[in-house]
């Protein structure tokens, strides 16, 4: 597999850890939108440069709609 799936994108790790409550940790660690439709995801070029990047993919067709760098906002 040249590209591997890295799960939902734009999840921000809560901080500082000692002051984060359990519900916020739960949302970050476990809760997922799991959208049916265009979904922003992390992907990794595992058999290439090894970098993570973000992509918009339609989960009803598996077609990629857009690709963008990690850290960049989700394209409109």
């Amino acid at each position: 597999m040249e590209f591997t799936h890295g799960g939902e994108a734009h999840l921000v790790r809560p901080s500082p850890p000692a002051q984060v409550d359990d519900d916020t940790w739960t949302r970050f660690l476990y809760m997922r939108d799991n959208l049916k439709g265009v979904y922003a995801e992390r992907w990794r070029h595992a058999r290439g440069c090894g970098q993570f990047f973000n992509a918009l993919r339609d989960t009803t067709t598996d077609h990629f709609v857009a690709v963008y760098k990690r850290g960049e906002p989700r394209p409109r």
């Binding site: 739960t26 949302r27 476990y30 809760m31 997922r32 939108d33 799991n34 959208l35 049916k36």
Partner: peptide
């Protein structure tokens, strides 16, 4: 996930 989202409930799925 799709149905529960209609009630504003997010799940670890």
């Amino acid at each position: 996930s799709v149905v529960m989202r209609m009630a504003g409930v997010q799940l670890p799925l």
